[in-house]
C-alpha cells in the first residue's frame, strides 16, 4: 500500500435538514413507501464524502448547454418560448463554486417528456430532447438556453398538476455535496398547489426555488431570462482542522 497518509481534505458543514423537504409527506403519495422509518445516522463527513468525481471539461460539446438546438445537433430549433436560464452557484460561506458540473432536464413546451414512461398525450417535439449540461465558470456562473417547459398533469391526487419546472443536478467538489433540485417560474399559479414543492416546509426555502424574470439579461427580439442562484453545502475552514482528535 502506498500513500497511506491522513487525507488532506476539509470537512463538510453538517446539513441543516430543516431547509430541506421532509422525506414522508402523504400529499406526495409515492413518498409514503419510499421514505425510511428510522432516523438518518448523522456523523461528521469522512474522506469518502469530502472527495468527489472529477470531470474533464473537454468532454462537453458546444451545444450541450443549448437545449433549443442540441437534440437536432443545430439543424432546427425546438418549439416554445425561448429563455435563458442562468445564475450563480455559491457555497454556504458565500464563495463561488467554480468548475462544477450542472445537468438539467425538463419537459417540452407542451409539458411532455421524451421518456418511455411518460404517457401524457401532449405531443413530442421532434426538435427537442430535454437535457443539457454545463460547467460553472471561475465565478460560479452558469447559463443554459432552452424553452420554457409546459405544466403537466401527473397521477397523485385526482387532479394534480406540476408547475412549470426544470430539474437541476449539481456536484460541488465532494460527493456529500450532491444535490438535485427543481427551478420554478415566477408567477405560475400552480406553484402554491404543488404537493412536491410543498414537501419543503420552510416558505422562504420554497421562494428560493422560484426564479424571477430577469429582464436585464434578456435579449431583445430573441429570449427572456430567468435567474436561478443556487447555494450548495459548504466546507468548514478553520485553522484547527486536520489534527488528531483532542489535540
Amino acid at each position: 500500500m502506498s500513500n497511506r497518509q491522513p487525507a488532506e481534505t476539509t470537512p463538510l458543514i453538517p446539513r441543516n435538514r430543516d431547509v430541506h423537504p421532509v422525506a414522508y409527506d402523504p400529499n406526495y403519495k409515492t413518498s409514503v413507501t419510499r421514505s425510511p422509518n428510522f432516523p438518518l445516522l448523522a456523523m461528521e463527513s469522512t474522506v469518502t464524502e469530502e472527495t468527489g468525481p472529477v470531470f474533464n471539461q473537454n468532454k462537453l460539446g458546444p451545444l450541450d448547454n443549448n437545449l433549443i438546438m442540441n437534440w437536432t445537433q443545430g439543424k432546427a430549433p425546438a418549439v416554445g418560448e425561448r429563455i435563458l436560464m442562468h445564475g450563480r452557484v455559491l457555497d454556504e460561506s458565500g464563495r463561488p463554486v467554480p468548475n462544477t458540473l450542472i445537468e438539467i432536464w425538463q419537459a417540452n413546451a407542451g409539458g411532455r417528456y421524451r421518456h418511455i414512461k411518460d404517457t401524457y398525450f401532449a405531443p413530442l417535439d421532434p426538435n427537442f430532447g430535454g437535457c443539457g449540461r454545463t460547467v460553472t465558470d471561475e465565478n460560479g456562473h452558469y447559463q443554459f438556453l432552452t424553452i420554457r417547459p409546459g405544466a403537466y398533469p401527473w397521477p397523485n391526487r385526482a387532479n394534480d398538476w406540476r408547475p412549470m419546472h426544470i430539474h437541476v443536478s449539481l456536484f460541488g467538489s465532494g460527493f456529500g455535496q450532491r444535490l438535485i433540485t427543481q427551478m420554478y417560474f415566477q408567477g405560475d399559479p400552480l406553484i402554491d398547489l404543488c404537493p412536491i414543492l410543498s414537501t419543503v416546509k420552510d416558505r422562504a426555502q420554497v421562494d428560493r426555488l422560484v426564479a424571477p424574470l430577469d429582464l436585464a439579461s434578456s435579449k431583445p427580439l430573441d429570449f427572456l431570462a430567468y435567474r436561478f442562484d443556487i447555494v450548495m453545502r459548504g466546507r468548514r475552514q478553520t485553522m484547527f482542522e486536520n489534527k488528531p482528535e483532542g489535540m
Binding site: H20, P21, S31, I104, H115, I116, V231
Partner: peptide
C-alpha cells in the same frame, strides 16, 4: 452564512438528465 438550496425529488424522468441513453436520448 447562506442556507443550502432545498432539495427536490429527482422524479420519474431523472434518466433524461443523468443517463440519457437509458432514457432513449442516446447520441445527444
Amino acid at each position: 452564512t447562506l442556507q443550502e438550496t432545498a432539495s427536490q425529488t429527482a422524479g420519474p424522468f431523472v434518466h433524461i438528465g443523468m443517463v440519457p441513453t437509458y432514457a432513449g436520448l442516446g447520441g445527444i
